[in-house]
Each structure stands twice: as C-alpha cells, then as structure tokens.
Design a binder for these strands. Structure first.
Lengths: 126, 126
DNA sequence: TTTTATCGATTACAGGTGTAATATCAAATG
DNA sequence: CATTTGATATTACACCTGTAATCGATAAAA
C-alpha cells in the first residue's frame, strides 16, 4: 500500500481535481492555500512519482503529471484504516462526534438517510 | 495540538482502556496484538510523556502512567482533521464508502438513525 | 553490605517528512 | 553556434518514527 504524507496529499488533491497538469500548474493551483516554495512542490511531485502515486508524460521540456491511484480508492483505504485505529472499526461513533460538534450539514444528513435506506433494502432481500 | 504517532497511539489505547498502569502492565497489555520488545514500549511511553500526552506518578521504583488527554477529545480532533483532509469536511461520503464495502453494522445503522433523528429535532426548534 | 536485578533515561540508527538549495541538462534565444 | 533559461534530478538537513540497546541509579536479594 502506497503511503502518502500530508504534504504529498495536498498535491494529490490538486491532481485528482484536474489532470494531467504540469509541475507549474500544480504550483499555481497550490498557491492559494499553501505557502510553499516552488522547489518544495517539485520535490513532492518527485516523491509521489517514486512512490508510484503519480505518473507523467514528457511534453517536451516539462512533464505532465497524473495520478496513478484514484481518489476514491485512496479515500476508501484510508477511511478504513483510520476508523479501525481510532474507533476499532465502527464508523457511527465518528459521525456522532461530528453531530456533537454541529459539523453535520443538511446535505450530510440527507445522504446518510439515503444510505440507510439502501442498506435496509439490502438487508431485506438477502 | 499534540501529535501522536501510530505506534504511540496503540499505547494510548491501552491506557484509555485501563488507567493508571505501570510500564510493565502496558507491555503485557500490548503483548497480544503487538510484537514489540519491552524496550520499544518504554520508549513510546517516554515519548508520550515528553509530548504531554501521558503523565505519571512515582509509585516507588516503577511509574504509574495515565493519559493527560481524553480518548474522546483525541477522536474528535483527529476525525475532524481527517475528514477535512480527505473529504473536504463532509462526513457522509466517508460513511458511503463504508456502506459500499459492507462495513456498516446493524449497530452502526441503528446509531446513525438515532443521530439523524436528534439532528432533525434540533433543527426544528431553532 | 556487596551484588544483582530492574527501572527509567539516554543514546542509536535507518528511513520518512517538511522544506528547500544546488546541480545538470536540454530547449529557447541571440 | 554560444548562451541563457527553465525543467527535472540530486543533495541537504533537521525533526519525527519505528525499533531497540546501553547507561546509570536504586531497590531487592544474598
């Protein structure tokens, strides 16, 4: 399993959103949120390539980078391991924490209701 | 915010469950799940004390360790930052991932329904 | 009381991470 | 063609982590 550090993750997020991008495009995209030197971003791109998280095509002088793992897969795997480590595998207590902090949006609740309904449908016909 | 590494977290989990414990008790408690040398566990205890995550009382020769931060607070803070980093703050997509992997237990679903109900109650009278 | 067994404290050491600076090499410019 | 520019590759470096081993002090044992 590929390990992606926090700083690296920010780079992945950019490339999961738009892809492929040149190193400079990634630097620009991160400009708003991160106060990183251009060299820092290039280092992160390099490490992500070494780790097999990113690939690139040579477009002449500059490279064009793209993710080799999907955001969805990464989210799934990390969620699983996070909930395992902190909540011993049960996700509801995590959601309860969000609720207690008023961090549940109406959209979240709507989606959760939907999920529950599907889940109950599943249970019935098996 | 105190940063607790993965290995350190396992030690915290033991002490969140029973507290206070001597170093040897912690070593024993971890014996099942982790294949760590006694020295390794002592190092982790030490680092956690340095970080301010654990305190201890001197009970003669050996120390008696106890958490200085609650499991609940830690879970809350880590959940928040995890969901922020991977899901841009929305928790429902995380739960959706669990559902899709059949990682939702009946207990989870029951608890989620309860949460939603409370949440809707809250919304009404404000 | 001298020796030994234990504790916690300190030190070790390789690999990862955050955060760049420098080196190298090829493309663009003059 | 020679030079400058700009991109990637390599190197840097301190701190964190995983995983212990060694040191030093003190309590227990002989």
């Amino acid at each position: 399993m590929i390990e992606i550090s926090n700083a690296e993750l920010s780079v992945m997020q950019v490339l999961w959103q738009r892809q492929p991008l040149s190193a400079n495009d990634v630097v620009a995209a991160l400009g708003n949120e991160k106060d990183w030197h251009e060299k820092t971003v290039k280092t992160l791109l390099n490490r992500l390539v070494s780790k097999g998280a990113l690939g690139f095509d040579k477009e002449g002088r500059a490279y064009s980078y793209f993710p080799l793992i999907t955001q969805h897969d990464y989210q799934l795997e990390q969620s699983q391991s996070f909930v395992e480590r902190l909540f011993f595998g049960r996700v509801a207590p995590l959601v309860a924490g969000f609720a207690s902090q008023n961090k549940l949006s109406a959209d979240d609740v709507a989606q959760l209701k939907q999920l529950i309904e599907s889940w109950e449908q599943e249970q019935k016909h098996d």
